[in-house]
Structure formats: C-alpha cells, structure tokens
Computed example of a mutant assay.
Amino acid sequence: MTTRRAFASVLALSGVAAATSLSGIGLARAQEAGGTIERIKAAGRLRTAAIPGSEPFFHKDILGGGWSGACVDMVKDMAAALGVTPEIIEAEWGTSVMDLQTGKIDIMFALSPTPARALQIQFSDLAINNAFTVIAKKGLSVATWDDLDKPEIRVAFDTGSSHDIFVRRRLPHCTPVAVQSPTDAIMALQAGRADCVVQVVVIAAVMHARNPAVGDLVLPQPVVHQPTCIGVPVSPDPRFLTFVNNWLLYNRSEGIVQEWMFKALRASNVDPASLPPGLEF
C-alpha cells in the first residue's frame, strides 16, 4: 500500500529528475544559441587551413615555417575584428571541406562554391572572380578549351581542387594527370608527364613567373570564370556567415581585398597589370 508520504517522495524525486533534465536541455540550447561567434571568442582563436604551394593565396616559409599570402592577411584581419588570434593549420584543397565539417577549422578562404560542396558547407558572397587558364608546353597550340579535350592531351591538376572539378567536367576526353598540389602539377609538366596544366589565373601567373620557360600562359576561349568564396560550417546560427559577408563587403568595397591580392602577387614577382581583364577582387 502506498502511503501519502511515499507518494510525496515519488513526486519530489520526479520533480528533481524533470528539473535536471530540463536544465540539461536548457544548457544545450543555451550553448547552441551562443553560436559560432561565441564559440570562436571563447576559444580565443579563429582557425583556418593553408595549402603549401598555392601562392598568391598561401605561401609557407620553408625555413621559418611561417605563413604569408593574401588569405593569410584576410584571416589575420578577420580575427582582429573578432578580437581573437588567427591559427593556421596546414592542409590540402581536397580535405578543406571535411576539415570544416569535422570542426578542425572554423573558416576556409579561396574556396570555389560548387553545388556538391554547397550541400556540405555554407559559402559567402563572391570574394574573387577568378578565371581558368592553361600553362601549355612549348609548341602546343591552345586557342580554345576544345583544343585540350582530346585523349592525346595530358592535363595536370591538383586533386580535390576546383581545377580537378573543372578538368573532369569541361575536358572529359583528355588524359587526366592528377597530382597533390599546384606545384606538383608544374613539376609534371616540366618532367614531360603532362602536356599542360590547368589552374586559375592568379595561381597560374605565379607558377609561370617562377619559370617562364616551362611553357606558355594561355587564356583559352571562351573565358570560363571561377568564383572564389569563403567557406564556413553549416550552422543553425546565421550570424557568423552574416558577419563574414559583411566583413567581405566592407573589405571589397574599400579595395582592401584587392590590396591583399596585389601585395601577394608582387611578392611572387607577378605584375598585377599583366593579369587578363575581367578579374574582380
């Protein structure tokens, strides 16, 4: 037989359990409501990835181990706006989306917003309106993209990048030569393992400036523009992406993004005036 006192005890215990459960739910919701910006500020750091051999976006000092480049200037400026310290993690283009998904990094600069990627992460507004170009071996005539879409033409590109996606979509009949980095693609051309390299123009211009004898820098027709954006993890809190877009709008309208890009290009011995028209920073 249940006594009134026992029944009261059961009610009391149930109340404690319910309160504990509700407090746990409330804490989880509070943490979620805090969002990405609060998490970054609490950690005191804004983490991004950098890819070796991807000038002018990223440049690694082999001797000192430090990083420079347009995207490094960007993350430093954004971290300062958030009141935190920038943290740069070495990675590859092919793993950058996964790094965002798994929480290894908070943000990734210089990413192309492909539909497949957009199903996995979120993208900012346009940061750079790039264009695809070719570094072709001496003697190889390239006027249009169709000139490269042949089985006998070996096209080098770095795996997992926008170059990779573009070559497989636009040049389905070529012989693909997939390598790890943009620098490796140039090495494949130098070694005779490839007939040409496909890269966006700002990277190709740097690679060509290092060794003009490697081949001819060509802008095949029709010009294929490549939008470059900033990637962030998917989140129910829209404020971080809103912040990124506002930061981008301000720095583009003030010409600061262009300053960062021109500075990085000049550091790689590329005259910005030599770039083809139509690029937007």
Rank of each mutant, 00 (worst) to 15 (best):
T3G: 14
A6D: 04
A8F: 00
A8E: 01
A12F: 11
A12P: 02
A12C: 12
S21D: 09
L22V: 07
S23Q: 13
I25R: 04
L27C: 01
R29G: 00
Q31Y: 10
Q31T: 04
T36K: 00
I37E: 10
E38S: 14
R39H: 07
A42M: 09
A42G: 03
L46C: 09
L46Q: 05
R47Q: 06
I51Q: 08
I51A: 03
P52N: 01
G53I: 00
S54A: 14
K60E: 10
K60A: 02
L63K: 08
G66R: 14
S68C: 02
C71H: 04
A79I: 06
A80K: 13
A81V: 11
A81Q: 15
L82D: 08
G83I: 15
E87G: 08
E90C: 00
S96Q: 14
V97I: 15
T102N: 08
T102R: 13
I107T: 10
M108Y: 01
M108S: 15
M108L: 04
M108H: 06
A110Y: 00
A110E: 06
A110C: 05
A110P: 01
L111S: 03
P115W: 06
A118M: 06
L119M: 09
Q120K: 15
Q122D: 14
S124R: 07
D125A: 10
A131N: 07
A131I: 06
F132E: 15
T133W: 13
V134Q: 04
I135E: 05
W145K: 12
L148K: 07
V155P: 07
A156N: 11
A156M: 07
S162R: 08
D164Q: 05
I165H: 09
I165Y: 07
R168C: 12
R168K: 15
R168A: 12
L171Q: 10
L171W: 02
C174T: 15
V179Y: 14
P182W: 00
T183V: 10
D184A: 09
M187H: 11
A188C: 10
A188D: 08
A188W: 13
L189D: 08
G192H: 12
A194C: 08
V197C: 08
V197L: 05
V198G: 09
Q199L: 15
V201G: 08
M207W: 04
V214D: 09
V214I: 14
G215V: 02
D216P: 15
L219V: 12
Q221N: 11
P222L: 13
C229W: 09
G231L: 03
P236I: 05
D237F: 04
L241I: 08
V244C: 09
V244D: 05
S253Y: 00
S253M: 07
I256M: 08
I256A: 01
V257K: 03
V257W: 05
Q258R: 13
Q258K: 13
W260R: 00
W260Y: 06
M261N: 00
M261A: 03
A267W: 10
V270T: 07
D271N: 13
A273M: 12
S274Y: 07
P277F: 01
